[in-house]
Design a protein around this nucleic acid. Structure first.
Length: 431
RNA sequence: GUGGAUGUAGCUCAAAGGCAGAGCACCGGUCUGUGGAACCGGUUGUUGCGGGUUCGACCCCCGUCAUCCACCCCA
């Protein structure tokens, strides 16, 4: 395409044209509705943070390879946030004395990772974070997982299409210890487990042996990962499942011993949501992090939460045919301009409709009515209001509904009633 | 960061070294008080960008940028 645009958008960013913005705001509306249904409060953190905030616990890869790093004028190293949880931990630590625990917070905003863009992966993405801090109880984990399930349900995804795979790092630590894998090897082995179905089996085994596992340990580990009944040995996992069962979302959950998550700060139950065919990356993922607040300088305040990016969920909804068709114009009606001499009366009519709470767009030139109606049709505006000489003489307007093609002559007051009836909140304004 | 593929009209794609095209979309008209259909007509381009080879380059070569795919990593 020959474009004369000299300045390109930053690699990996997306321009949100109104159609895309309508989807983003629809998603935001679903997120907000589910979060608040469970009593979570909305918050936001800075997009720029000190790099060292992530050095604390996020994992080396995330900090060194995937962060957008820049220096401020004082020479301090800053990063465009690659995730929210460390910022959340900092905010909690700063207010720990005055917060009423447990805290239930959620957020939806932009994040950055310096990766090579491709389908389903951008450098700037939007992410929903939802966290519950201040409770050690597995019912907190159960609540968080269930919120994820309720969200999936709310966007129309069924247990036939998606599944949340659940495990516990605590349980895995115990099982690893039983086969002789101690604390010093634990994180490394978690990374090994995390990557199992993303590598060819022979390479995966070679890697395992390379990090010092014996052939016997490798066999035992492989057996562990295939054991779908392992969760019965974990009281906390039993409680998580029981909570989800009681909340009516158990059909979205399954146990999977191979889920351990890549980030280093998880300490207890962990989970990831996938499409059933597992054709896409994880829809969301999260778990329990009991030491993170202490790690950024606060008291020990345990937490559990998850994060969901906007890119994969959109891709999945598209793929299963459940991406909603959203109106892109907020306009409820187009007020046509019949002729130049009616300009004043036409604008006054539009103004009176707006003051009555109706979203009204005004056609600016007295062009042929066919052009004006056509414009409304193509823009997706459902109603057209016509004020011509006949209407002015009678003190009435003509109201036409495009979908049905029906029209009627009525007084301005009646027009207001008709236009208000069934006027829905536009999708681009979050609920 | 590594490997591979692709860049031609707004979109989807032709043109295989010899005049840059089609469908859809768009604009106008048939139709100066009414959209979607039909018919008629029209516009659509620095062939991503820069260089090279050639009498001649969308086509071949080099570079570059962008997009896509696979690694990597993860939302």
């Amino acid at each position: 395409m020959a474009t004369k645009t000299a300045i390109q958008a930053v690699k990996g960013t997306r321009d949100f044209y109104p159609e895309a913005m309508a989807f983003r705001n629809w998603l935001y509306g679903k997120i907000r509705a589910i979060s608040e249904r469970f009593g979570y409060q909305e918050y936001e953190a800075p997009i720029l943070e000190r790099l060292e905030l992530y050095a604390a616990k996020s994992g080396e890869e995330l900090v060194k390879e995937q962060s957008f790093v820049l220096k401020d004028r004082g020479g301090d190293e800053l990063a465009l946030r690659p995730e929210l949880t460390p910022s959340l931990a900092r905010m909690i630590a700063q207010r720990q004395a005055s917060l009423v625990l447990p805290v239930r917070w959620y957020s939806f905003g932009p994040f950055w990772r310096y990766e090579r863009p491709q389908r389903g992966r951008t450098r700037e993405f939007f992410q929903w974070n939802i966290d519950l801090l201040g409770s050690d109880s597995p019912t907190a984990d159960g609540e968080i997982v269930s919120i994820g399930a309720e969200f999936l349900r709310s966007v129309g995804l069924t247990p036939d299409e998606v599944v949340i795979r659940l495990n516990s790092r605590r349980l895995m630590e115990q099982k690893l210890a039983e086969i002789g894998i101690g604390a010093e090897q634990r994180l490394e082995v978690f990374h090994l487990i995390d990557r199992r179905d993303r590598m060819p089996p022979d390479k995966w085994q070679a890697w395992a042996l390379e990090m010092g596992l014996s052939a016997g340990q490798l066999d035992a580990l492989t057996a562990l990962l295939g054991d779908s009944e392992l969760w019965r040995e974990s009281e906390e996992l039993q409680q998580v499942f029981a909570t989800a069962e009681a909340l009516g979302v158990a059909d979205y959950l399954t146990y999977d011993a191979s889920i351990v998550r890549g980030l280093d700060y998880y300490t207890g139950p962990v989970f990831e949501a996938y499409d059933r065919g597992r054709t896409l990356r994880a829809i969301f993922g999260g778990g329990r992090y009991d030491n993170l607040v202490a790690d950024v300088g606060g008291d020990r305040i345990p937490g559990v939460g998850f994060a969901m990016g906007d890119v994969i969920i959109e891709l999945l909804l598209e793929r299963v045919g459940k991406r909603p068709k959203l109106p892109t114009t907020p306009s409820r009606a187009l007020v046509t301009l019949f002729s130049a001499d009616l300009y004043g009366q036409t604008l006054a009519l539009a103004a009176s409709l707006r003051r009555a709470g109706i979203n009204v767009e005004q056609y600016l030139e007295p062009e042929r009515l066919s052009k004006q109606v056509r414009y409304a049709d193509r823009k997706g505006i459902p109603w057209v209001v016509i004020l011509g000489p006949d209407e002015v003489a009678a003190g009435r307007v003509v109201l036409k509904e495009l979908a049905s093609g029906e029209q009627r002559s009525c007084t301005p007051a009646e027009a207001i009633e008709l236009l208000k009836a069934g006027q829905v909140e536009h999708a681009s304004s979050p609920v």
